[in-house]
Protein backbone atom coordinates (compact mmCIF):
# COMPACT_ATOMS: atom_id res chain seq x y z
CA UNK A 1 0.00 0.00 0.00
CA UNK A 2 1.17 3.50 -0.77
CA UNK A 3 0.30 6.08 1.83
CA UNK A 4 0.38 8.80 -0.80
CA UNK A 5 0.29 8.28 -4.52
CA UNK A 6 0.02 10.97 -7.15
CA UNK A 7 0.07 10.93 -10.89
CA UNK A 8 0.51 14.08 -12.90
CA UNK A 9 -0.71 16.09 -9.96
CA UNK A 10 -0.87 19.79 -10.74
CA UNK A 11 -2.27 22.68 -8.79
CA UNK A 12 -2.70 26.23 -9.97
CA UNK A 13 -3.49 29.18 -7.76
CA UNK A 14 -4.79 31.87 -10.06
CA UNK A 15 -1.91 32.30 -12.48
CA UNK A 16 0.87 30.46 -10.67
CA UNK A 17 1.43 26.75 -10.71
CA UNK A 18 2.27 25.55 -7.21
CA UNK A 19 2.62 21.97 -8.42
CA UNK A 20 3.09 20.68 -11.92
CA UNK A 21 3.08 17.16 -13.16
CA UNK A 22 3.99 15.73 -9.81
CA UNK A 23 4.11 11.94 -9.85
CA UNK A 24 5.21 10.00 -6.81
CA UNK A 25 4.39 7.09 -4.58
CA UNK A 26 5.28 6.87 -0.93
CA UNK A 27 5.28 3.37 0.53
CA UNK A 28 3.73 2.72 3.91
CA UNK A 29 5.67 2.48 7.13
CA UNK A 30 8.11 5.22 6.30
CA UNK A 31 9.11 8.52 7.78
CA UNK A 32 9.24 10.69 4.74
CA UNK A 33 10.98 14.04 4.51
CA UNK A 34 9.61 16.39 1.89
CA UNK A 35 12.25 19.00 1.22
CA UNK A 36 12.68 21.84 -1.15
CA UNK A 37 13.19 25.59 -1.17
CA UNK A 38 10.42 27.92 -0.11
CA UNK A 39 7.76 28.03 -2.79
CA UNK A 40 8.64 24.61 -4.15
CA UNK A 41 5.11 23.36 -3.59
CA UNK A 42 5.64 21.39 -0.38
CA UNK A 43 2.67 22.85 1.44
CA UNK A 44 0.46 22.49 -1.62
CA UNK A 45 1.37 18.83 -1.98
CA UNK A 46 0.67 18.19 1.70
CA UNK A 47 -2.59 20.12 1.54
CA UNK A 48 -3.65 18.01 -1.43
CA UNK A 49 -2.84 14.88 0.60
CA UNK A 50 -4.99 15.94 3.55
CA UNK A 51 -7.91 17.19 1.48
CA UNK A 52 -7.33 20.91 1.89
CA UNK A 53 -6.73 21.44 -1.78
CA UNK A 54 -8.27 20.07 -4.92
CA UNK A 55 -5.99 19.29 -7.80
CA UNK A 56 -6.20 21.32 -10.99
CA UNK A 57 -4.99 18.29 -12.92
CA UNK A 58 -3.97 14.76 -12.14
CA UNK A 59 -4.82 12.43 -9.30
CA UNK A 60 -3.90 11.90 -5.73
CA UNK A 61 -4.89 9.08 -3.39
CA UNK A 62 -3.93 8.32 0.18
CA UNK A 63 -3.74 5.10 2.18
CA UNK A 64 -4.26 2.92 -0.82
CA UNK A 65 -7.16 4.20 -2.82
CA UNK A 66 -8.84 6.80 -0.62
CA UNK A 67 -9.63 10.24 -1.92
CA UNK A 68 -8.03 12.90 0.30
CA UNK A 69 -10.70 14.78 2.20
CA UNK A 70 -13.18 11.91 2.06
CA UNK A 71 -14.54 10.86 5.41
CA UNK A 72 -12.68 7.56 5.25
CA UNK A 73 -9.42 9.34 4.55
CA UNK A 74 -9.97 12.10 7.10
CA UNK A 75 -10.56 9.53 9.76
CA UNK A 76 -7.15 7.97 9.21
CA UNK A 77 -4.98 10.90 8.17
CA UNK A 78 -3.92 13.41 10.81
CA UNK A 79 -2.45 16.76 9.86
CA UNK A 80 -0.53 19.40 11.75
CA UNK A 81 -0.52 22.47 9.58
CA UNK A 82 2.22 25.03 9.30
CA UNK A 83 2.31 27.48 12.23
CA UNK A 84 0.08 25.08 14.18
CA UNK A 85 -3.34 26.69 13.89
CA UNK A 86 -5.29 26.05 17.07
CA UNK A 87 -8.01 27.98 18.84
CA UNK A 88 -5.76 30.28 20.84
CA UNK A 89 -8.56 31.63 23.02
CA UNK A 90 -9.51 28.18 24.30
CA UNK A 91 -7.96 26.44 27.27
CA UNK A 92 -5.88 23.36 26.58
CA UNK A 93 -8.64 21.26 28.11
CA UNK A 94 -11.29 22.80 25.85
CA UNK A 95 -9.01 22.35 22.84
CA UNK A 96 -8.75 18.65 23.64
CA UNK A 97 -12.53 18.50 24.02
CA UNK A 98 -12.97 20.20 20.64
CA UNK A 99 -10.65 17.70 18.98
CA UNK A 100 -12.38 14.79 20.68
CA UNK A 101 -15.76 15.94 19.44
CA UNK A 102 -14.50 16.52 15.93
CA UNK A 103 -13.36 12.90 15.64
CA UNK A 104 -15.18 9.65 16.08
CA UNK A 105 -11.85 8.01 16.87
CA UNK A 106 -10.06 9.89 19.61
CA UNK A 107 -8.19 8.54 22.61
CA UNK A 108 -8.75 11.24 25.17
CA UNK A 109 -6.99 9.38 27.96
CA UNK A 110 -3.91 9.06 25.80
CA UNK A 111 -3.98 12.76 24.95
CA UNK A 112 -4.35 13.76 28.60
CA UNK A 113 -1.61 11.40 29.66
CA UNK A 114 0.73 12.78 27.04
CA UNK A 115 -0.04 16.38 27.98
CA UNK A 116 0.66 15.54 31.62
CA UNK A 117 3.99 14.01 30.63
CA UNK A 118 4.78 17.13 28.60
CA UNK A 119 3.81 19.28 31.59
CA UNK A 120 1.33 21.31 29.60
CA UNK A 121 -1.15 22.76 32.07
CA UNK A 122 -4.74 21.94 31.04
CA UNK A 123 -6.17 25.24 32.26
CA UNK A 124 -3.78 27.46 30.38
CA UNK A 125 -5.06 29.24 27.27
CA UNK A 126 -3.59 27.74 24.12
CA UNK A 127 -2.37 31.18 23.04
CA UNK A 128 -0.38 31.51 26.28
CA UNK A 129 1.62 28.33 25.64
CA UNK A 130 5.11 28.58 24.21
CA UNK A 131 5.57 27.84 20.52
CA UNK A 132 7.05 24.47 21.38
CA UNK A 133 4.14 23.59 23.65
CA UNK A 134 1.60 24.63 21.04
CA UNK A 135 3.31 22.37 18.54
CA UNK A 136 3.33 19.55 21.06
CA UNK A 137 -0.35 20.11 21.79
CA UNK A 138 -1.24 20.01 18.10
CA UNK A 139 0.82 16.87 17.69
CA UNK A 140 -0.78 15.28 20.76
CA UNK A 141 -4.24 15.95 19.34
CA UNK A 142 -3.21 14.34 16.06
CA UNK A 143 -1.66 11.32 17.74
CA UNK A 144 -4.77 10.76 19.85
CA UNK A 145 -6.66 10.16 16.61
CA UNK A 146 -4.55 7.02 16.12
CA UNK A 147 -3.79 7.91 12.50
CA UNK A 148 -2.37 5.63 9.85
CA UNK A 149 -0.69 8.61 8.26
CA UNK A 150 0.59 11.68 10.05
CA UNK A 151 1.28 14.71 7.90
CA UNK A 152 3.35 17.54 9.35
CA UNK A 153 3.88 20.79 7.47
CA UNK A 154 7.15 22.46 8.49
CA UNK A 155 6.86 21.17 12.05
CA UNK A 156 10.32 22.39 13.02
CA UNK A 157 10.40 25.76 11.33
CA UNK A 158 9.56 27.89 14.33
CA UNK A 159 10.96 25.77 17.12
CA UNK A 160 14.16 26.29 19.05
CA UNK A 161 16.65 23.39 19.08
CA UNK A 162 15.39 21.92 22.32
CA UNK A 163 11.76 22.16 21.24
CA UNK A 164 12.70 20.56 17.92
CA UNK A 165 14.30 17.66 19.68
CA UNK A 166 11.33 17.19 22.00
CA UNK A 167 8.83 17.49 19.17
CA UNK A 168 10.55 14.95 16.97
CA UNK A 169 11.14 12.65 19.94
CA UNK A 170 7.38 12.65 20.46
CA UNK A 171 6.80 11.81 16.80
CA UNK A 172 9.45 9.11 16.74
CA UNK A 173 8.30 7.49 19.96
CA UNK A 174 4.73 7.42 18.68
CA UNK A 175 5.91 5.86 15.43
CA UNK A 176 7.85 3.26 17.40
CA UNK A 177 4.73 2.50 19.44
CA UNK A 178 2.10 2.51 16.70
CA UNK A 179 3.95 2.16 13.43
CA UNK A 180 2.10 4.73 11.40
CA UNK A 181 3.59 6.49 8.41
CA UNK A 182 4.81 10.06 8.61
CA UNK A 183 5.33 12.71 5.98
CA UNK A 184 6.89 15.95 7.09
CA UNK A 185 8.05 18.90 5.08
CA UNK A 186 11.11 20.94 5.83
CA UNK A 187 13.16 23.55 4.15
CA UNK A 188 16.03 22.76 6.48
CA UNK A 189 18.14 19.94 5.12
CA UNK A 190 20.50 19.28 8.00
CA UNK A 191 19.54 16.58 10.50
CA UNK A 192 16.99 15.07 8.12
CA UNK A 193 18.78 11.74 8.17
CA UNK A 194 18.12 11.49 11.83
CA UNK A 195 14.37 11.52 11.34
CA UNK A 196 13.62 10.41 7.83
CA UNK A 197 14.26 7.21 5.94
CA UNK A 198 12.63 8.31 2.73
CA UNK A 199 13.17 11.53 0.86
CA UNK A 200 11.20 13.57 -1.64
CA UNK A 201 12.89 16.64 -3.06
CA UNK A 202 10.55 19.14 -4.65
CA UNK A 203 11.71 22.08 -6.71
CA UNK A 204 9.53 24.48 -8.62
CA UNK A 205 6.50 22.29 -8.23
CA UNK A 206 8.15 19.15 -9.57
CA UNK A 207 9.64 16.07 -7.99
CA UNK A 208 13.39 16.22 -8.35
CA UNK A 209 14.51 13.28 -6.36
CA UNK A 210 12.68 10.60 -4.46
CA UNK A 211 13.60 7.41 -2.75
CA UNK A 212 14.89 5.50 0.20
CA UNK A 213 17.59 7.64 1.77
CA UNK A 214 20.03 4.73 2.07
CA UNK A 215 19.54 3.94 -1.60
CA UNK A 216 19.99 7.55 -2.59
CA UNK A 217 23.19 7.85 -0.59
CA UNK A 218 24.48 4.55 -1.87
CA UNK A 219 23.68 5.64 -5.38
CA UNK A 220 25.83 8.75 -5.26
CA UNK A 221 29.48 9.41 -4.61
CA UNK A 222 31.80 12.36 -4.43
CA UNK A 223 34.78 11.80 -6.72
CA UNK A 224 37.87 13.91 -6.42
CA UNK A 225 40.94 13.95 -8.60
CA UNK A 226 43.08 16.00 -11.01
CA UNK A 227 41.11 18.71 -12.75
CA UNK A 228 42.43 17.86 -16.21
CA UNK A 229 40.88 14.40 -16.07
CA UNK A 230 37.58 15.60 -14.70
CA UNK A 231 35.83 15.82 -18.07
CA UNK A 232 36.92 12.32 -18.94
CA UNK A 233 35.69 10.94 -15.64
CA UNK A 234 32.55 13.01 -16.00
CA UNK A 235 31.67 11.13 -19.19
CA UNK A 236 31.84 7.89 -17.30
CA UNK A 237 29.25 8.89 -14.72
CA UNK A 238 26.08 10.85 -14.45
CA UNK A 239 27.40 14.04 -12.94
CA UNK A 240 25.10 15.99 -10.66
CA UNK A 241 27.53 18.69 -9.71
CA UNK A 242 31.03 19.67 -10.73
CA UNK A 243 33.30 21.89 -8.71
CA UNK A 244 36.73 22.71 -10.05
CA UNK A 245 39.76 24.16 -8.34
CA UNK A 246 43.06 24.99 -10.00
CA UNK A 247 44.43 21.48 -10.00
CA UNK A 248 41.68 19.52 -8.38
CA UNK A 249 38.07 18.77 -9.20
CA UNK A 250 35.18 17.31 -7.25
CA UNK A 251 32.33 15.58 -9.01
CA UNK A 252 29.13 14.52 -7.37
CA UNK A 253 28.00 11.58 -9.45
CA UNK A 254 25.35 8.92 -9.59
CA UNK A 255 26.90 5.50 -9.37
CA UNK A 256 24.98 2.98 -11.32
CA UNK A 257 27.31 0.08 -11.84
CA UNK A 258 30.80 -1.01 -10.91
CA UNK A 259 32.89 1.49 -12.71
CA UNK A 260 36.58 1.48 -11.98
CA UNK A 261 38.03 4.84 -11.14
CA UNK A 262 41.21 5.91 -12.87
CA UNK A 263 44.19 6.02 -10.59
CA UNK A 264 44.65 9.28 -8.79
CA UNK A 265 40.92 9.56 -8.20
CA UNK A 266 39.28 9.06 -4.87
CA UNK A 267 35.71 8.35 -4.07
CA UNK A 268 33.97 9.42 -0.91
CA UNK A 269 30.53 9.07 0.55
CA UNK A 270 28.11 11.91 0.11
CA UNK A 271 26.19 13.30 3.01
CA UNK A 272 22.48 13.73 2.58
CA UNK A 273 22.81 17.46 2.95
CA UNK A 274 25.43 17.68 0.21
CA UNK A 275 23.31 15.54 -2.04
CA UNK A 276 20.10 17.50 -1.56
CA UNK A 277 21.83 20.85 -1.92
CA UNK A 278 23.56 19.72 -5.09
CA UNK A 279 20.25 18.77 -6.66
CA UNK A 280 18.48 21.88 -5.47
CA UNK A 281 21.28 24.08 -6.76
CA UNK A 282 20.80 22.85 -10.29
CA UNK A 283 17.12 22.01 -10.79
CA UNK A 284 17.66 21.56 -14.52
CA UNK A 285 20.39 18.92 -14.21
CA UNK A 286 19.70 16.34 -16.85
CA UNK A 287 20.84 13.39 -14.78
CA UNK A 288 18.05 13.62 -12.33
CA UNK A 289 16.41 10.37 -11.45
CA UNK A 290 13.27 12.05 -12.68
CA UNK A 291 9.79 10.84 -12.05
CA UNK A 292 9.75 7.13 -11.56
CA UNK A 293 7.71 5.06 -13.93
CA UNK A 294 4.97 2.93 -12.42
CA UNK A 295 7.10 -0.16 -12.98
CA UNK A 296 9.94 1.26 -10.97
CA UNK A 297 7.53 2.24 -8.27
CA UNK A 298 6.28 -1.31 -8.07
CA UNK A 299 9.79 -2.62 -7.75
CA UNK A 300 10.73 -0.13 -5.09
CA UNK A 301 7.80 -1.27 -3.07
CA UNK A 302 8.61 -4.93 -3.01
CA UNK A 303 10.51 -6.01 0.04
Amino acid sequence: MNVVETSGLAKRYRSTWALRDCTLAVPAGRIVALVGPNGAGKTTLLHCAVGLCTATNGNITVLGDLAPGSLDALERVAFVAQDVPLYKYLSVRSMVAVARNLNSRFDQAQAEERLRALEIPPDRKVGKLSGGQQAQLALTLSLARDPDLLVLDEPLARLDPLARHDFMALVMAAVAASGFSVIFSSHVVSELERFADYLIVLARGRVQMLGDIDDLLAGHAMLSGPVEESDLVGEQFAVVQTRKAARHAELLVRTTGNSELPSGWESDHVSLEELVLAYLRDPSASMLPGPLTPDELEVSEVT
Binding site: L52, L74, F79, P85, N103, S104
Partner: peptide, 9 residues
Protein backbone atom coordinates in the same frame (compact mmCIF):
# COMPACT_ATOMS: atom_id res chain seq x y z
CA UNK B 1 -6.64 23.82 8.44
CA UNK B 2 -7.21 22.21 11.82
CA UNK B 3 -10.99 21.87 11.79
CA UNK B 4 -11.38 20.82 8.19
CA UNK B 5 -8.85 18.02 8.50
CA UNK B 6 -10.48 16.36 11.48
CA UNK B 7 -12.47 13.17 11.13
CA UNK B 8 -15.82 14.89 10.99
CA UNK B 9 -15.10 16.41 7.57
Amino acid sequence: RFTWTQGVG
